[in-house]
């Protein structure tokens, strides 16, 4: 009787507890999210970014291939011809309006693959939740990455020079 209890009850409990005790030595698996974020995988696809060249010109040429490739039809591109006075991209045209409906988007990355100039890329910023529907239409101004440091400072100095000259 006692040996049966030892074999069928106490021994399994001890084995289980031993397993638990061994696990205690390991690190915690929990990612303490709002304070710490986990390392994103290299090819994580989240929020879109419209890239610029090093001299500050936009890479997007307004060809709408991304909109054609999008399975959810969430991209809207309206293109406009570049002029020598106002040049946004090195090509013939640029995107006057570029809008992505983030609620429709399924972050498949087809736009990134379809883009001939590598203008649209999906980056790892996943904090996109919001309260109201209109906030999810991301416009070109929101998507475009800021001017690169050197080009921005050059432009600033030019502007400052022009301002101080007269």
């Amino acid at each position: 009787m006692i040996t049966e209890v030892g074999r069928d009850v106490i021994r399994p409990i001890l084995t289980g507890m031993l397993l638990t005790a061994r696990r205690l030595k390991r690190d915690k698996t929990t990612v303490f999210y709002p304070e710490k974020k986990r390392q994103p995988f290299p090819r994580t696809r989240w929020r879109h970014v419209l890239k610029r060249y090093d001299n500050g010109l936009e890479k997007c040429i307004g060809c709408s291939l991304c909109a054609g490739a999008c399975p959810a039809k969430c991209i809207y591109v309206e293109s406009e011809y570049n002029t020598d006075e106002e040049r946004c991209s090195p090509g013939e045209r640029y995107a006057k309006r570029y809008e992505i409906n983030m609620l429709r988007c399924i972050f498949c990355g087809f736009c990134q693959e379809a883009c001939p100039t590598g203008a649209i890329v999906l980056r790892s910023d996943f904090e996109l939740a919001d309260y109201s529907r209109p906030d999810f239409i991301y416009t070109k101004e929101m998507l475009l990455e800021p001017m690169p440091e050197e080009a921005g400072s050059e432009r600033d100095s030019e502007a400052a020079g022009q301002a101080s000259a007269p």
């Binding site: 990612v31 999210y33 972050f107 498949c108 996943f126 904090e127 996109l128 919001d130 309260y131």
Partner: peptide, 25 residues
């Protein structure tokens, strides 16, 4: 709807962010 969480599917972090947004609300 109070909070929309975009993504297909949203990662657990993104859902937690949505929950924090709801808590703020």
């Amino acid at each position: 709807v109070d909070v929309y969480v975009p993504g297909c599917p949203p990662s657990p972090d993104a859902l937690l962010y949505g929950l924090l947004k709801l808590q703020d609300k």
